[in-house]
Computed example of a mutant assay.
Amino acid sequence: MTAPGGAARHRPARRPTIKDIARRAGVSESAVSFALNDRPGVSDDTRARVRRVAEELGWQANSAARALSGERAGALGLVLARPARTLGVESFFLQLVSGIQEVLAARKIALLFQVVEDLDTECALYRRWWAERRVDGVLVVDPRTDDPRPELLAALGLPAVAIGGPAGPAPSDQEPDTAPPPLLPTVWADDAKAMARVLDHLHGLGHRRIVHVAGLPGLAHTARRIRSLRTEAALRGLDERQVRSVTTDYSDAEGAEATRRILDDPRPPTAIIYDNDVMAVAGASVAAERGIPVPAALSIVAWDDSALCRVTHPRLTALVRDTPGFGRLAAHELLTVLDGGPPRTVQGELPHLEARESTGPCE
């Protein structure tokens, strides 16, 4: 039958069922169930035939049905509560997800990824995933200084690993290696030592007026970096009039606007540290617009290295770390928890500073 005008009607392909496999393989539906779920009750030859037919038909287990029968859903969740406009230009999360996906693909586990507007929506999504048994566990990113997610996930009994640092209800001046145990298993990066490396480099070049263009306020790692900058500056005899931080949403637009305000100061800094690569590139563009030579009159450092830092002229000094490796580490930790292993706090690789042409002596 054809539609008006002679065009054929296209119906969605019907998903194959256990009944289809049983008919094709010439066995009962119960035999198919036994074979596909690795249960006793069928011969090795029947099991192999059923699996071959299932593969030919493109059959996949229904995750909801598997969950209701007590099996795993075969998926992990990752929710990102950030302004969507900031994601298209920042490479960090793409690299992180690539590392996560590499580990999950080897175990044939899906990654359910969703971007939401705020933390309340993220928490509501966890409740829904738990009720529907959509995921076996979640990877929690962007830990907050005041974070409701660990207690919620613990109450739901939904396994989770925090990425980036401890996620908990109260901020602390202690770093993860000396603070009380976090509420969630955690994979963390030592932002304090990374900031110390940046300050060592700039201070050694003679810079005494330094501004840190930070990311979103309220994020635990933003607070750690701001606190670490203040501590490291004090150790070098610098006060808050000389070294300070301003917060942004990580976007190139806010990075550029923050740079304009900073350079309008009566005593502008001789060096600026940016919390990501896109803000650093935007800041370098603002300096170029104003005829401020980099690094002769202004040194620039990016927190995370990327191709942007390496192709910008001058090339940007940056903190270099294995972000995909960080994602792989987090995925391994969550799978370990799901497999019955103990919850742990694991430190990722400490970034090293790659000095390039955007930093130089303070004249």
Rank of each mutant, 00 (worst) to 15 (best):
14 R>W: 03
211 V>H: 09
108 K>S: 14
297 A>I: 00
351 P>D: 02
351 P>M: 02
132 E>I: 05
180 P>V: 06
308 L>N: 11
104 L>G: 13
68 L>W: 10
318 A>T: 08
268 P>V: 01
283 G>Q: 06
169 P>Y: 07
41 G>L: 10
127 R>N: 03
178 T>D: 12
327 G>L: 11
153 L>I: 02
270 T>P: 10
132 E>A: 13
150 P>C: 04
108 K>D: 15
270 T>M: 00
313 H>G: 05
29 E>S: 10
74 G>F: 10
108 K>Q: 14
320 V>W: 03
341 G>L: 03
295 P>H: 07
311 V>A: 12
181 P>C: 04
49 R>M: 01
57 L>G: 02
332 H>F: 06
321 R>W: 07
147 D>L: 10
100 I>Y: 03
102 E>Q: 13
238 L>R: 10
43 S>V: 06
301 V>D: 08
259 T>Q: 08
1 M>L: 13
61 A>K: 12
126 Y>K: 03
332 H>E: 15
142 D>F: 03
202 L>N: 02
203 H>E: 09
155 A>W: 01
123 C>W: 00
150 P>G: 01
135 V>H: 07
260 R>T: 04
358 S>M: 10
5 G>Y: 03
305 D>E: 15
287 A>M: 09
203 H>R: 12
193 K>H: 06
164 G>L: 04
270 T>Q: 01
159 P>V: 05
93 F>L: 15
338 L>D: 06
